[in-house]
Amino acid sequence: MTQKVALVTGAARGIGLATSKLLIEQGWKVAMIDRDASELAIAAEPLEQGFPFEYDVSLPDDVDKMAEAVISTFGRIDAVVNNAGVADFRPLAETTFADWRRIMETNLDGLFLVSQATIPALKKTKGALVNIASISGLRASTLRVAYGTSKAAVIHLTKQQAAELGEFGVRANCVCPGPVRTKLAMAVHTPEIIAAYHDAIPLNRYGTESELADLITYLCSERASYVTGQVIAADGGFESTGVGLPALRG
């Protein structure tokens, strides 16, 4: 049986790295894509079936070269995890067009470009697209006008992909992480922010990178063979609570 190949963007750290590791544990080869060459090399070095490719998903020429390199190396792509993303949190009135475009170039344009470049390969394998959005694409909040809008667009793009690619056997699904206990989050979230999130999340905690990886790899696999066009919030119930004021729960 031919070993399956996954392409994971933003694979040098966080959810992308956790997903790459779990896919490898499950028997996949993984093309690990990131623009941070040094961090990517460190992440991929101990992974026998993890192969680093340094490309920037926001650059069309880079994406074309990336797709060509991955297909040339492995001969196939069975799943694409569009995880690469950047964030910028500032008030609406202070968000410049340059700020807006910087977020869109990676979070939305990059996802579109990678998907378009890999769809021919996915059609051949009847593979899967898994796009990583955010709870911020489902719920509006302050300081996230560009980030939240980019992730909301990812959600709808996923549905468009599912609608058009289903006849070719290609599935497209979207995962919306809630607060996740990454190194970056823990470095920038104050104790007050952490406590506020815990109060607002029914499960009363942050998620973990491995919990997100479990869901993502499921959607890549044949176990999810009849699942497409779905938007799944892995958020401890955060989205389901609406306003979610702890004082109103009693």
Rank of each mutant, 00 (worst) to 15 (best):
A153W: 00
A163N: 13
I103F: 02
N82V: 05
L129F: 15
A146W: 02
H156V: 13
V130G: 10
V86M: 03
V63G: 12
M104P: 08
N107A: 03
F74H: 09
A121Y: 04
R90H: 11
A163M: 10
I71Q: 12
V130K: 09
V57E: 11
R139T: 15
K151L: 01
D64G: 14
A133Y: 00
V57K: 11
I155K: 06
G85S: 05
I71W: 00
I132P: 06
T106M: 02
V57Y: 08
V80M: 05
V114Y: 01
E164Y: 06
V145M: 11
L108P: 08
G127D: 00
G50A: 04
F74Q: 03
L129A: 10
A162L: 08
G127L: 06
N82I: 05
E48F: 03
D109Q: 06
L165I: 06
T142H: 14
R139W: 03
K151W: 01
E54F: 02
I42T: 15
L129M: 13
P52M: 07
E48S: 14
L165H: 08
H156D: 10
T95M: 04
A98K: 13
F53H: 12
E68V: 09
S58L: 12
P91F: 00
L138E: 12
Q49H: 14
S141D: 13
A128Q: 03
P60F: 11
T106P: 00
V130N: 07
A152T: 07
I42E: 14
R102K: 13
F51H: 15
L143P: 08
A121H: 04
D78T: 05
L40Q: 04
L40S: 08
I71L: 13
R102E: 10
L40V: 07
V80A: 13
Q160L: 13
K159E: 15
I119E: 10
V80H: 07
F89N: 12
T158Q: 11
T118Q: 09
R139Q: 15
L165D: 07
S141Q: 14
D99T: 04
I71H: 12
I103L: 03
M104D: 01
K151I: 04
L40A: 07
G148P: 02
S115Q: 02
M66K: 05
P120W: 02
G148V: 02
G110R: 01
Q160P: 05
L138V: 07
T149F: 05
L111P: 11
S58W: 03
G50L: 01
H156P: 09
E94F: 03
A44G: 08
Q161C: 09
A162K: 05
Q160N: 14
T95R: 04
S115W: 01
R101V: 08
E54N: 12
S72W: 00
D61V: 10
D61L: 14
Q116G: 11
D109L: 00
V86D: 00
L108M: 09
Q49R: 12
D109S: 10
P91S: 04
S150N: 01
A44Y: 01
R144N: 14
